[in-house]
Amino acid sequence: MLEVKDLHVTVEGKEILKGLSLTVNAGEVHAIMGPNGAGKSTLSAVIAGKDGYEVTAGSITFEGRDVLEMEIEERAQAGLLLGFQYPVEIPGVKNVYLLKAALNAQRKARGEGEIPAPEFMKLVKEKLGFMRMDASFLQRAVNEGFSGGEKKRNEILQMLVLEPRLAMLDEIDSGLDIDAMKIVADGVNSLRSEERAVLMVTHYQRLLDYIVPDRVHVLVDGRIAKSGDKSLALELESRGYEWVLEESAA
């Protein structure tokens, strides 16, 4: 599904990713862990298409398409969705409008007509209920005045409505208390299916107790230094990252 090959990325002249390779297949959940500054957030930002990241070498393909050649919105329409670590506040744009405009943009890209209003409301209400969010959220401006936990839940709500093929979650657990984390994890888990994949970036093993990954990668100094199954996360939790560094240097 997603193929990242030998990716080199510089930000303001500094090389952050130094030959990262990663393959995510449909049906899989991958977790990328690593110390601060290793380039975890850079990877998802580059895949989503954020400005200011220069790809100097390597490639990213998504279902055979060259992601780096696609507009930001085309990536989303193709089913690549990024959940932000710090969701932006958008005063004056109501949540309900964002959801509807986004869903219709995706349908349009697939050659489908706009979703009928009753169907849309039914869908959104169901997802709101799942995320234990009040219907009043729909009328509020996107993320404006939301608490940290509400913002994260709102990111997942968008995912549930848009049903991405690949959901990328950037530190979705940061700032969440345990109850909020369970709700967020339930949301993400409900996205899991044979056709979909999840790529999450996290600093803490705790999240992985709730969203159990198929593969765990350790990102150190711009490269994947080690990959394994979920037991790798537990090992990292108890031993830290030092041993991976030493091992990869050896």
Binding site: G49, V88, L98, A101, A102
Partner: peptide
């Protein structure tokens, strides 16, 4: 950017 990442 945030809106575009939602396909708009």
């Amino acid at each position: 950017f945030a809106l575009r990442t939602r396909g708009i």
